[in-house]
Design a protein around this nucleic acid. Structure first.
Ligand SMILES: [Mn+2]
Ligand SMILES: [Mn+2]
Ligand SMILES: [Zn+2]
Ligand SMILES: [Zn+2]
Lengths: 145, 145
DNA sequence: ATTTAATTGAAAATGAAAATCAATATCAAC
DNA sequence: GTTGATATTGATTTTCATTTTCAATTAAAT
């Protein structure tokens, strides 16, 4: 964990709640919303406050250990960055399932477009919205009724 | 305008404010936020209410003449759909400028990935965040100071 | 012109996220 | 280990974007 380095550098403290929230967040490989993470933490730390979860999540972003992402809902989600492998997302609008994928060729073509427009890209977001295999099947059987 | 068809079909009415808001929105080729459009309309229709702008924008989405998009800010933007040509976006995080681009090859590769994962794509979002040429220059000259 | 239902603007309500603040916990210095 | 400065906590309030409510107004079909 080079979180400790960050905290020391900034004169911040490692509290019990931070430790537990961060451990939970970084271990589960999910795209947590603040609410989801809060609910998960309540079970292990009944006293936690909502605000602490928000604060910790933002701390992780500042420390470079997480990023904010949004999947078309009007809520912010957070994604651990410790694996540090860039990827994009497929989001099932039926069940909410999120599938990660990599596609180097697409990445390359994105750079190409940017260059064409004299645009200096810092980050990008690519999301496919649709139905996963399961939800697709469900939809088809519904339509038949 | 096949907006009138939609209104008739749904038993809705074409009011003065709707007419003006919609005309303004569809003519300017911008990615309006509700607030921006409200401010633009206030000048032409001092009495308009904020709620009416929101309602009209949502009406356009329901009618299939606009879509909601979000560019990483925590506000919703609306994009006219009348040209009906799909495109993706480059967003300048310096000046807010939005550049539209098309890249059929990227689109094709997206479909390919989806197929690979048995994912049935309904829509997608691809946004490049970075600096436009102008803002790039500004940044460089700042760094030198 | 009459009637009916949709629409409007103002204000209140909502929901996610951030800010406030008094009480508490961390941790570096002793 | 104790102390003390200061960062953090949880509860609460505030903010901000968006939606809802509601009484008054307006569109448009008859
Ligand atoms: Mn991911
Ligand atoms: Mn556009
Ligand atoms: Zn699904
Ligand atoms: Zn710019």
């Amino acid at each position: 964990m080079d979180l400790k380095d960050y905290l020391k550098k900034k004169g911040l403290k490692l509290t019990k709640q931070r430790e537990k929230i961060i451990t939970h967040f970084l271990n589960k490989d999910k795209h947590f919303s603040a609410e989801e993470l809060y609910n998960a933490m309540k079970k292990r730390m009944p006293g936690v406050g909502y605000a602490t979860v928000y604060r910790t999540l933002n701390l992780l972003v500042r420390a470079g250990l997480a990023t904010k992402i949004s999947f078309g809902e009007n809520i912010t989600r957070f994604e651990p960055l410790h694996r540090n492998e860039h990827h994009d997302h497929m989001v099932c609008i039926g069940c909410g399932k999120i599938v990660e994928f990599k596609h180097p060729k697409i990445e390359r073509l994105q750079k190409e477009v940017a260059r064409r427009y004299n645009f200096y890209t810092q980050s990008h977001a690519l999301e496919l919205y649709g139905y996963c295999k399961k939800c697709r099947k469900k939809n088809i059987s519904k339509e038949k009724k």
